[in-house]
Amino acid sequence: MELLVAVMVGVMVAASVHLMLARNVLRFIFGLILISNAANLTIFAAGRLTPERPPLIPEGADAPAAQVANALPQALVLTAIVIGFGLFAFALTLVYRTYQTLGTLNSDEMRLAEPRGEDGS
């Protein structure tokens, strides 16, 4: 299964890179969401996938009875999901505010700080 997840993560990253290469910043945001998910899955899969054995300690025991899923990447991913959401929410607000101010979502037309020189495409 890990092998398939690895392939799938590759597909997700490819799609998000394509989105992030767009001029429209809303597409860029979509790419951001997608790549966060891909990154989380990468961490999760790197800790190996264990079906149907959550890392819990049964009542009365001091340690898990048998081999359970790797708890460490789960903790990392949990944190990463929340941070990724914070990043996404802020970026979306920024896009919204930019649109309010500049009237465009095209990153090429956002030229307040770097006026277009002879070099601009």
Partner: peptide, 14 residues
């Protein structure tokens, strides 16, 4: 995927 591979807390958050 998180649910299937034993990460219920992560799945809820996700």
């Amino acid at each position: 995927i998180f649910i299937m591979f034993s990460a219920p807390d992560v799945a809820i958050t996700q």
